[in-house]
Amino acid sequence: MNYILHLGTFFGIYAILGISLNLLVGGTGLIWIAHAAIFGLGAYVLALLMTKVALNFFLAAFLGMCIAGIVGCIAAWVFARLSGDYYMLASVAFNYIIVSVFINWESLTNGPLGISGISRPSLFGISFAGNESFFALTFLFLGLVYVSARLIMHSSFGRVIKAIREDEEAIRVFGYHTLLYKIMISGIAAAMAALAGALFASYIAFIDPSNFHVMESIFILGIVVVGGFASIRGSLLGALILVLLPEVLRFAGFPQDISAHMQQLVYGIVLILFMLYRPQGLIGEYKF
């Protein structure tokens, strides 16, 4: 039972990541390989606020979302001039720089050793320390993220975002200030990713910079690729498949030290196969 709750909680966290990245990637059509850095930002802000100044989880998570949201907006504004490959390379650079800060700002982040002893949430005397209640909390947040993502994509705001993806020049001619839209969607996606980071940090109680590397960003992009671009439901499916895949491989019985690399190998091959045979993902509406 605990095992299923554990997988369920992880699924919830990664589904939030997938959905938020899909708002950005599926919305704007640009490849963003820095979601793990934003995820990490949320996790680090929460961990620091909870362990150093004993702030309540919910308040700390909210502050993390605000900070990440602002960082997301700034990144979108700075990178707005870039398109295609350059945008993607810049995002890789961005991820690298953020992780460098996690590693090298030792007085604050404790460097490569990371931060431990992050506690589970509690609010008005209700504790979410148990695995069941934490699972429920994660799903509550996932539900909120899912509903807001759908509302965003089906609102007039979402339609403008999709139009930017299809033809930015054309929508600009109609008088839309496209930069503003890109900055806003980026801020929203970053805040959601930071929420996932807060849940992650509180759930496993220990974070270090290696959790938030470029490889992790590629993994999160994999959720979007498998599920389907611009499909919010697809991201749920993608997260489910990519969270369960390692468990399947675990039962295949590879030795412990090999199995992590086997997982990576399978992820890589999955990405290639999807691009070759199903670039729109399992239930995606948009062919990249």
């Binding site: 059509g29 590629i218 690399h261 190998l265 890589g268 290639i272 691009m275 670039p279 990249f288």
Partner: peptide, 24 residues
């Protein structure tokens, strides 16, 4: 005849897979 982004994501897949093979 797909968009360049499809090439890029496929090359990311190749990157992840080859790195995993080196580790294995």
């Amino acid at each position: 005849n797909v968009r360049p982004s499809v090439h890029v994501i496929a090359s990311l897949g190749a990157f992840v897979a080859i790195q995993a093979l080196l580790s294995i």
